[in-house]
Design a protein around this nucleic acid. Structure first.
Lengths: 227, 227
DNA sequence: ACCTGAACACCGTTCAAGT
DNA sequence: ACCTGAACACCGTTCAAGT
């Protein structure tokens, strides 16, 4: 089950062994069924052994999310225009959750503060290259973060039961366009993907406008940190 | 505690009495601390009495969400342009969750299928008035629904602990604009509100473009259901 | 019709004890 | 250093019994 080579005895486990096992379990059965007893059982270890490595169940979940981002190679690409780089990141995150829909849990933060800080700094530098500064810079960042987290939580959360429930609801509306779009989970996902693309471009348009106004109006075309 | 007049004995309770009590409890203490034992205790009734009115705890939560929307008078206004009506609805929903942040639970659907169907139909008719049809209509609807649910879940979810956690994270970034924006929960909320407004307008711009293209290209300027 | 009381099968977490 | 085993204080839910 785990990607990391498990010790044959199941003893002497590392932090990552628990995180990987949690990720595998959640992929297979969902977040809710994951109990520390079930996790211990999967690793051939007592339920409370996990406390030697983590302070709480939530920490295990945070570590599992981190493992997912690592496994799916989610990162900001280093080539392309700032806009292209941001769009690629948003798509990368979306595809990571597409592969691990049960991990789309809102309000699950990462433990690694340093990595998070570096990520945010790089994202801010891209937005600065698009001409944003001051409160506008933070507003633009917040808008994109909320969009990414929100759309992943709603599109993938409790997948596929959540989406199937919405599908059945759509069929009750009795509108021809809704009927066509809600034929299957696959057509629902297609609509979600198109909505994601449309929204991402629209938000990036708004970011560009917000950055562009300042630059043409005040004549600041990148006098600050461009490199 | 409850808005509805509670019977003095605490017995012979209605469905709404449970829903109201759940909403009050969640407003006061959050979703997680709400147990059926705590709910029964608040109503002066045994923990399992709730099962005479609801099939599961989740149904109680759905009913509490419904009571919230009723109490906060969330509805689509009937005056203004379609765009204005949609924007007013998005703001109304946001303000309802602002008043009941602990209720911002993703993937919590409503029980009342008929009301939901009517709501979606009316929303669709507004989008049709903006020139949308076919898959584009559904994509536009989906984009706005995802935005609304996602932004409420992320902005208000586990408020204020969630936002406070993000605030501390922002302060670690060490960027002057972030420092200014993350001075307090209030400044964080201000940024969130501005991000919401910017995103809502950007998405509605995209919807307008998506509807407008068809109309000018095919020459359909509202030959269908405009009234 | 509505509520009680006991019980079932679980939880996360703590802590002394083992090796 | 890492895991076990028992225990604590909870859960949601079922079901027979009360009135």
């Amino acid at each position: 089950m785990t990607t990391m080579p498990a010790r044959e005895s199941g003893k002497g486990l590392s932090r990552d062994a628990y995180a990987d096992a949690a990720l595998d379990f959640i992929d297979a059965h969902g977040v809710e069924p994951l109990s520390l007893r079930a996790l211990g059982n999967q690793l051939g270890v007592h339920a409370t052994a996990v406390y030697r490595h983590f302070d709480s169940k939530n920490e295990v979940l945070e570590a599992a999310l981190q493992r997912m981002l690592e496994r799916e190679n989610v990162q900001i690409p280093e080539t392309g225009t700032p806009r292209e780089q941001i769009l690629a990141l948003l798509r990368g995150l979306r595809d990571a959750f597409r592969a691990h829909p049960h991990m789309a849990i809102p309000n699950l933060t990462l433990q690694d503060e340093q990595a998070t800080v570096e990520f945010v700094r790089y994202a801010l530098s891209l937005l600065e290259q698009m001409g944003l500064q001051g409160d506008d810079l933070v507003v633009a960042y917040q808008m994109l973060e909320t969009f990414s987290v929100g759309t992943n939580a709603y599109d993938w959360g409790e997948y596929p039961e959540g989406l199937e429930g919405r599908r059945r609801g759509r069929r009750l509306v009795g509108h021809p366009a809704m009927d066509t779009a809600s034929r299957s989970i696959e057509t629902m996902t297609e609509i979600n993907d198109r909505a994601f693309e449309l929204a991402a471009e629209a938000l990036l348009d708004a970011v560009e406008r917000l950055g562009g106004v300042d630059r043409s109006a005040v004549g600041v075309t990148g006098s600050r940190d461009r490199g």
